[in-house]
Computed example of a mutant assay.
Amino acid sequence: MEDPHPRIEPRNIQFDFAPELPVDWHSDNPAVSHFYDALSLTFPQGERFFIDSVRLFEGEIADPELRRDIKSFYAQEAIHSREHASYNALLSAHGIPVEGFNRLMEKATRWAQRMMPAKGQLAATCAYEHYTALFAESILGDPRVMSDAHPLYRDLWRWHAMEEEEHKSVAFNVYQAVAPGFLGYLRRVIVMTIATFDFMIAIPILQTWLMYKSGNLFNFKAWGKACWHLWISPGIWRHVMLGVFSYLKPGFHPDKRRVDPRVLEWRAHYRATRKREIGMHPTLFGES
């Protein structure tokens, strides 16, 4: 069986966000699509924040294996940022004022970097990386999550999820190295609590804003189907929220969470299709 924790591998994949791609790319439903669009809007600046917070402590890391993983983490996150910037540019082409939101995110990030101590910034990265790992578990472990998505977006989210699962412990390992003991634990729990409130408020607000901008704010049928998708079946939001509690345990480590066999399949899949055009290949799990 493949090692569940192999070397972190940056995959320089570029997606073709052509203008003819559907706006309601998931389930032909604007509310479901805009939930994932809301996540995408936060990624370019968020991924840069993650890189910067780890870089603050890179010089204190002596372990050569962790230093190698840090470099691969930087590369993966930079590619994610680039691809989601392209994704978001297509939202802009569809009439969403993305540039204004980007400026707001940049200001908020600069403010956080000025106001938060360095270890607090790293703890924030650990918290949000746990969220992305939880999304990855659901996206990769339950084919229903992306079964009704357009093939390009389906591949984008599964590729991103697979790499997030792959590097989920890097920032945490750096944090443990520079902030050990009870104070380190207390800080990461406090920061996770703050991050949870931020996440639970910011993403629904962004989703609602996108629904307003696309003229679907009062599309109650779409909202109802989105609530079912997010909370009931497949229930990706429910999976993520319930997964937060494990992070609060003193002995928590990302690598202690079970690696779904489908994650290993996706790693093998992307190695085998490295040079193929992503978004056009048949899916690994056999959906049409």
Score class of each variant (00 low, 15 high):
Pro10Ile: 07
Val32Ile: 15
Leu140Asn: 14
Phe73Ile: 04
Ala75Gln: 14
His94Glu: 08
Lys256His: 15
Pro64Trp: 12
Cys126Pro: 02
Gly59Asp: 11
Phe197Lys: 06
Lys213Ile: 02
Asn88Val: 08
Lys256Gln: 15
Ala118Val: 06
Val259Asp: 04
Leu248Met: 09
Trp223Phe: 06
Ile70Gln: 02
Leu230Arg: 02
Ile205Ala: 13
Arg187Asn: 00
Pro204Ile: 12
Arg257Asp: 03
Ile278Asp: 00
Glu2Lys: 07
Thr273Phe: 07
Phe172Val: 01
Glu47Met: 02
Ser81His: 10
His150Trp: 10
Arg158Lys: 06
Leu41Gly: 06
Ala108Pro: 00
Phe50Lys: 01
Ser138Asp: 11
Met1Glu: 07
Met115Thr: 12
Tyr247Cys: 02
Glu106Asn: 01
Trp25Ile: 05
Arg276Cys: 00
Leu104Met: 05
Phe252Val: 03
Phe182Cys: 01
Trp266Tyr: 15
Pro261Asp: 08
Trp111Phe: 13
Met211His: 11
Thr196Lys: 06
Leu242Val: 06
Val170Gln: 01
Phe43Gly: 00
Tyr153Phe: 15
Thr193Tyr: 01
Phe197Ile: 12
Tyr212Gly: 02
Pro97Tyr: 05
Phe220Ile: 14
Asp3Arg: 13
Tyr74Asn: 10
Tyr36Ala: 01
Pro151Gln: 06
His281Ala: 12
